[in-house]
Each structure stands twice: as structure tokens, then as C-alpha cells.
Computed example of a mutant assay.
Amino acid sequence: MTAPTFPMHVSVDDARTHLTALLPARTAETVPLAQAYGRTLAADVPALVSHPSATESALDGIAAREADTLGASADAPARLRVIGESRAGAAFGGTVGAGECVRIYTGAPLPAGADAICPVEQLTDDGPDGVLLRRPASPADVRVEGGDFRAGEVVLHAGQHLTAPRLALAAALGHAQLSVQRRLRVALLSTGDEVVPPGQPLTAGQVYDSNSVGLHAMLLEAGCEVLPLGHAPDSPKALQAAIDAAGGADVLLTSGGVSMGKYDFMRDLLVEQGRVSFWKVRMRPGGPAILGGWNGLPVFGLPGNPVSSLVVFHVIVRPALTGQPPQTLRLRAATPFRALPDKTAFWRGVVDGGQVRDYGQQGSGILRSLSDAGALVIVPEGQAVQAGDDVDVILL
């Protein structure tokens, strides 16, 4: 390999910045709610209606004037006269006066004159038109019109990831479709002579292709459209043919072939025939990652070790693809976490009761650790974490 003319050993933040700069500008498209899950909002979403649309009951029971029920108890119940009912879709049209009440059901509009609710569990019928209250009616059980949101209020914001609760909220706001960012089209390629598709027999030294399976799922979770390119052996000609097949993609994501070895041909192709933005990141696991380009196509090369590949995706690639930084929590360290003098460490940890402890096995080939541990503990360069210290954690 020729002497490098590109940055090496960049920081994690710089790696994200470099990748983000190579991605195309996001355009917007409008899709139905049923197609919006996992997408990113391209525009603010205002409420088209107020919610609740009317002042209503939060409970089944009776609607009454609070003043008529003060002092009601099991030993001395208050009696009110029932003059009608209010239910969702059929509101009571009259006015509740002194000593009167209306039977009401959850979500039904509160009748004029009433200002409080007594739940059905605290009521006893008393004759054909009477009811006894064993406790006072409470204004706290009244939902005020617009108490959740009011028409015209911006409730969801551009840049937010559309989760199931946010989609439900968008529907409640009155929207049947949303403006979202166009999905990035990510071509995915795994490499290596030793890599075999799951389900086939293995010979000595071979491994199943776990990287492409995990990365494919993570790309879908990040809201991307995935173009699977399958697998390419350790051959410059085969790798070049595979890369050339990524036409139409916004970015190519590869795994393997980017480290220091003689057969790391993905690295050599980018260095000698393509373009390199950086090689190697000051992080562990995942240091050998490379970012470059091939005939105008951005190429991000992940390490081949399974843990390294998936951790680099979590820490660098996903934030660039989604435009969202990694979501971190500040937790108390239950065990020490060692520091590296010149790299940020992302050690696997187990979260338990507001604390995080060292998973133990931190080798980049221990794939089960990402499933069992559930968190990455961020240890900055040269700053060891002692038991009892607070530490930033990325949940997996």
C-alpha cells in the first residue's frame, strides 16, 4: 500500500462528520400513516383538532356539581336525582342543576352545569331516579377540552423518528399522511473467503455470515432501504464487480477486508483505485473502519469481526444515517471499566437497577456479548471509570 495521503486514526465524532458529509441531502416525500413507521419526519406536524375535542369524563359514573356532593361518605352518602345520561357520540343536551346528576361514561362530553365526576364504584342506586354517592365528586376526573393538545399547536417536529406512539399521536392530530424524509438506499456487502451463508456445512476456519444478517436488521431499524449484494470472496476482481453492482444506492456498507492484513483487499481498492476520507478510528472495538468512495458512491467499510462491525454501526453509521446522535443514559458504574490511552472504549455492560456492570468478555469475536450485555459503556481516552462513578451508556 502506498503512503497514506488521508486522515488516519480519526475520532469517533470526526468519523460521523465525515460520513454525514458524503450522504446525499434528504428530500421529502408524503406517505400514508401505514407506511410511515420507522421514518423520519421532514416537517413539523400541527394538530388539526383539539384533544379532547370537548370537556369530557375520564371515568364511568355520574356527572354532577361538586358543591352538591361535598361531605359525602360511606356513612353519610349524598343523594342526587338522575336526569339523563351522556355517552360518547350522544351527549346530554340539558343542564345539570342543584341536586341533579347525569350518568356518564368514559369519553362522554360533560353536561352543562356539571363540573365533577363520581366513579361508578362509589355509587348505589336509590330508587328509579336517584343515586347515592359514598364520596364527593371530583373535578380531577374531568378531562378539559384541549388538555392534551389544541388545534394549531405543533405537536410533532421535523427530525423526529416515527415510533408507534408517535404514529398514533399523528392519527389523533388528524393526519392521514405525513411528510417524511426519503429513505436512504444502502447497499450491503459482506466479504471474506471464510464467510459462509447460514445453513451450509462449515469446514475448519469458516464462519457463518452473521454480519450481513445483523447489519440488514439494523439498517431496517434505522429506516433505510436495503439493497443486499450478498457476499464476495477475498479477490480484488470479485470485490470490484460487487461494488459496481451497487448502482442506485446512496451509500455502500461493507464488512471485512479493511484492516492491516495481506488479504484486506477492500482497503486496497479504496486506497489505490478509489478515494479515502479516513482510515481507522480511535475506538475499540472497531478501529480499522474505513470511509471512502468508488466512482462517486460513498463506501463505508466495517471491520469483519462481528462485534466490531455491529458496534461501529451503532456508534458511527446509524447516527449518520438517521441524523440522530446515539441515545445515551447516565448510570452508576457497579464495576470498574478500564480506559485505553489513545482510544475511546465501548465496553459491553449489563444494566441492572440503575447501574451498569462489566459484561466480562470484551473480545471482538464474542458475538453473544452484544445479545447478553445490552449496553455499551463509553470510556473516554485515558479516563478510567471506577466503581461508583457515573458513566454514559448506549443501550443496544
Score class of each variant (00 low, 15 high):
residue 170 A to S: 08
residue 125 D to V: 12
residue 129 D to Q: 06
residue 177 Q to F: 02
residue 129 D to H: 09
residue 191 T to A: 02
residue 154 V to W: 01
residue 185 R to E: 03
residue 184 L to D: 00
residue 160 Q to G: 06
residue 151 A to F: 02
residue 181 Q to M: 11
residue 184 L to C: 03
residue 150 R to I: 10
residue 141 D to M: 15
residue 173 L to D: 03
residue 186 V to R: 00
residue 130 G to K: 07
residue 172 A to G: 09
residue 184 L to F: 04
residue 194 E to Y: 00
residue 141 D to Y: 15
residue 165 P to D: 14
residue 177 Q to A: 14
residue 157 H to T: 14
residue 162 L to E: 03
residue 145 E to P: 10
residue 192 G to V: 04
residue 182 R to C: 14
residue 188 L to F: 00
residue 154 V to S: 04
residue 181 Q to E: 13
residue 161 H to S: 14
residue 132 L to W: 03
residue 196 V to C: 09
residue 135 R to E: 14
residue 125 D to E: 12
residue 193 D to H: 14
residue 188 L to G: 00
residue 177 Q to P: 01
residue 141 D to A: 15
residue 174 G to C: 03
residue 193 D to I: 06
residue 161 H to Y: 12
residue 176 A to D: 15
residue 180 V to I: 08
residue 158 A to P: 08
residue 147 G to C: 12
residue 165 P to V: 13
residue 151 A to Y: 02
residue 184 L to Y: 05
residue 193 D to P: 05
residue 188 L to E: 00
residue 172 A to N: 13
residue 185 R to P: 01
residue 172 A to V: 04
residue 124 T to G: 11
residue 182 R to V: 12
residue 148 D to C: 07
residue 178 L to V: 06
residue 177 Q to N: 11
residue 169 L to S: 05
residue 174 G to T: 02
residue 174 G to W: 02
residue 194 E to K: 00
residue 180 V to Y: 06
residue 158 A to N: 09
residue 131 V to W: 10
residue 146 G to V: 03
residue 177 Q to C: 12
residue 133 L to N: 06
residue 128 P to S: 15
residue 159 G to H: 08
residue 154 V to C: 03
residue 137 A to N: 03
residue 167 L to M: 13
residue 154 V to T: 07
residue 172 A to F: 04
residue 183 R to Q: 13
residue 127 G to A: 08
residue 148 D to E: 09
residue 139 P to K: 02
residue 165 P to L: 15
residue 138 S to T: 13
residue 176 A to R: 15
residue 148 D to Q: 07
residue 186 V to I: 10
residue 189 L to D: 00
residue 195 V to F: 12
residue 129 D to I: 02
residue 127 G to Y: 02
residue 182 R to D: 13
residue 183 R to N: 01
residue 178 L to T: 07
residue 145 E to M: 15
residue 164 A to T: 10
residue 177 Q to D: 13
residue 126 D to V: 05
residue 146 G to C: 05
residue 165 P to T: 14
residue 196 V to F: 07
residue 158 A to T: 10
residue 181 Q to C: 13
residue 133 L to F: 07
residue 164 A to Y: 05
residue 180 V to P: 05
residue 125 D to G: 12
residue 154 V to H: 03
residue 191 T to Q: 00
residue 154 V to F: 04
residue 190 S to Q: 04
residue 147 G to R: 02
residue 176 A to C: 11
residue 141 D to L: 15
residue 135 R to I: 07
residue 130 G to V: 10
residue 147 G to A: 13
residue 174 G to S: 08
residue 164 A to K: 06
residue 179 S to E: 07
residue 127 G to D: 05
residue 162 L to D: 01
residue 196 V to M: 06
residue 162 L to K: 04
